[in-house]
Design a protein around this nucleic acid. Sequence first.
DNA 1: TCATTATATGACCATAATATCATATGATAT
DNA 2: ATATCATATGATATTATGGTCATATAATGA
Lengths: 106, 106
Amino acid sequence: MKHTLETYGFFFGALANPNRLQIINVLRQGKKNVGEICEATRFEQTMVSHNLKVLEYHGMVFMEKDGKLRYYTVNKKTIKPLLEFTDAHMDEYCCKLLGEQHERKK
Amino acid sequence: MKHTLETYGFFFGALANPNRLQIINVLRQGKKNVGEICEATRFEQTMVSHNLKVLEYHGMVFMEKDGKLRYYTVNKKTIKPLLEFTDAHMDEYCCKLLGEQHERKK
DNA sequence: TCATTATATGACCATAATATCATATGATAT
DNA sequence: ATATCATATGATATTATGGTCATATAATGA
């Protein structure tokens, strides 16, 4: 751990939100502008913009202007292995626990 | 992504807290019981127990009873590469941004 | 059995995160 | 210059998270 604990916490916090994860997921299919992300997710534009800002700040997505459009791409180098790795962990440890006690409140 | 977005979000949320990260960090040195974790972190016992529960739920730490003591170990298989990977990402993308705009409120 | 030590649990309050609403900026075209 | 479209920003209300306090459980020993 080379950085402060706050920095790590902040970083993981960016991934701790299902809506942001859905945006990431949509971007894994390829480059998309904000409108396309809204369409794919059925999220409001302002919400998407706010969350893209968080993701961009943490280097999880990159932005590229094209006229009045802004295209976003996911940082595959980071996101792909991070999620694959998390998948593997969940397969082994997490899912067998879900539903036991700690069920997240709706 | 094989699991629900909520599950991933919940998982990363467990890592989105500096105190939990500090507990993890202490456990990386080796197996410790709750009292030893309190001593090492200077955290209150109840706070440590609450946070250990979260970490254990997500398979990030394991627990082993020994008399009235409960020893915890970190799940190195998951935590070590996850943190190393995050380090590498931060070296490249994150730290150069810190302090620019999104500084976390105190 | 009772006392003590170690740890966990539940309730509560303060703080932080989040989506939404209203509005602003920026780019293009007319 | 103004209208329009795409996106961003700021404020606010609501919800979620987290630490603390009080208390419970569990194990051991006297």
